[in-house]
């Protein structure tokens, strides 16, 4: 078994463990490459099926290609696809592109708050109806208490301290210094009522591993990752107003892998194009403490 085989086996084991132990779980699908690999790994774990609902938080500032891509594969792979949003903030224009709040507050409104209330079931959820191919208001408002997230330890500081199975209390507090031990493939799978859980099957993957796996498995990823002829592409996908494409002429997965291995991105952080990380120093750490994923 090579390194990718091992990473895959570990992630599959974690996904199966999560599915076995928790009833109300959901998998976040940001449409980015990491959570798309995660979705692919779920198909591996469950032999082509995806028995876990997928949740996307739509900020309505995503590039249209992302939504088209999401819905295309939701239909093709018969996904139990749900999206949620912060309807109020959008209606009252409490967003950065509207010029009414700063970037961090915008993230907090459109992502963190939307995610929190969609998970809890307080805010409407929209579920894809595979008979019509459209989204209907979901009648299920039960809270999701387990969330599978595609974070990687190498992404940035706060993520390197994560566990595969990471409990958060009702206030979303994360006790970084007092986390459960994980050994011999045994994770924390017993919880006091009210505990919320995040599951991180991709923790040991690097950005390069992700691309190598996309290549090996021939996983379809969003077209925004590739140069469409204007000499730039997205290295990380976010909302259009806060994500700067990087200069790159890579048009294939192979070219991206080369770029990461030896080219100009070998020593530059992946999220360097994401503006909210820089706002106010340690912005992502602040957002994560509040429940950003």
């Amino acid at each position: 078994m090579d390194h990718l085989d091992k990473l895959e086996a570990q992630s599959v084991y974690i996904l199966r463990e999560a599915y076995r132990e928790f009833k109300n779980i959901v998998m976040l699908w940001s449409i980015g490459k990491d959570s798309t690999v995660l979705l692919w790994l779920a198909r591996k774990a469950f032999f082509g099926h995806v028995p876990i609902p997928l949740l996307h938080i739509d900020t309505h500032y995503k590039v249209p290609e992302m939504i088209q891509y999401r819905d295309r594969f939701a239909r093709e792979w018969k996904l139990n696809m749900i999206y949620g949003e912060n309807t109020e903030a959008l209606r009252q224009k409490q967003t950065f592109p509207d010029g009414n709040v700063d970037r961090l507050t915008c993230c907090r409104n459109l992502k963190t708050e939307a995610l929190k209330h969609t998970l809890s079931g307080e805010w409407p959820r929209y579920r894809m109806n595979h008979d019509t191919g459209e989204y209907d208001l979901d009648s299920n408002t039960e809270a999701y208490t387990g969330v599978i997230v595609g974070v990687r330890a190498d992404e940035e500081g706060s993520r390197s301290k994560e566990r595969y199975f990471s409990p958060r209390d009702q206030d979303n507090d994360w006790e970084v210094g007092d986390q459960p031990p994980e050994l011999w493939n045994q994770y924390k799978t017993n919880f006091a009522p009210g505990t919320h859980l995040r599951i991180h099957p991709l923790l040991d993957w690097t950005e390069l591993n992700i691309w190598e796996y996309i290549k090996r498995e021939n996983i379809p990823v969003c077209s925004l990752y590739f140069d469409q002829g204007c000499g730039s592409r997205n290295r990380s996908l976010g909302c259009a107003p806060c994500t700067t494409p990087v200069e790159s002429t890579s048009t294939t997965v192979d070219e991206i892998i080369d770029e990461l291995k030896t080219g100009k991105f070998a020593n530059i952080a992946e999220r360097s194009g994401r503006a909210q990380d820089k706002e106010d120093g340690g912005g992502l750490e602040t957002l994560r403490r509040e429940g950003y994923m």
């Binding site: 940035e156 500081g157 706060s158 390197s160 360097s272 990380d277 340690g282």
Partner: peptide, 15 residues
């Protein structure tokens, strides 16, 4: 290196 990590560079404190 740990300080840098908090600012988003890829060296890991534990690893």
């Amino acid at each position: 290196l740990k300080d840098e990590q908090a600012q988003g560079i890829t060296i890991d404190s534990a690893r």
